[in-house]
Simulated assay, not measured.
Amino acid sequence: MSHEVEDETTVNESYSVTVPAAVRREAGVEAGDKLRWHVDENGKISVELVKQQYGAFSQLDPVDIGEPSNAAEDHDLIAGDT
Rank of each mutant, 00 (worst) to 15 (best):
M1P: 12
S2G: 06
E4Y: 09
V5S: 10
V5R: 15
V5W: 09
E6R: 15
E6K: 15
E6D: 08
D7I: 02
D7L: 05
T9A: 04
N12H: 07
N12R: 01
V17C: 11
V17D: 03
T18V: 10
A21E: 14
A22V: 03
A22W: 05
A22Y: 04
V23C: 09
V23P: 05
R24A: 10
R25K: 14
A27N: 00
A27D: 00
V29P: 02
E30F: 05
E30M: 11
A31P: 12
G32P: 02
G32N: 07
D33L: 06
D33F: 11
K34Q: 07
L35K: 09
L35Y: 02
L35N: 11
R36A: 10
W37M: 04
I45S: 04
S46C: 05
S46P: 02
E48S: 15
E48G: 12
V50D: 13
V50M: 12
Q52A: 05
Q53G: 06
Y54R: 13
G55K: 09
A56H: 10
F57N: 05
F57M: 05
F57H: 01
F57S: 03
S58L: 08
S58G: 15
D61I: 00
D61S: 14
D61R: 04
V63Y: 14
V63C: 10
V63P: 08
D64Y: 12
D64L: 11
I65P: 00
G66M: 04
E67N: 12
P68Y: 11
N70E: 04
N70H: 09
A72V: 06
E73T: 11
E73W: 05
E73N: 11
H75S: 07
D76M: 07
I78Y: 14
I78R: 08
I78C: 09
A79K: 11
G80N: 03
G80K: 03
D81I: 00
T82H: 13
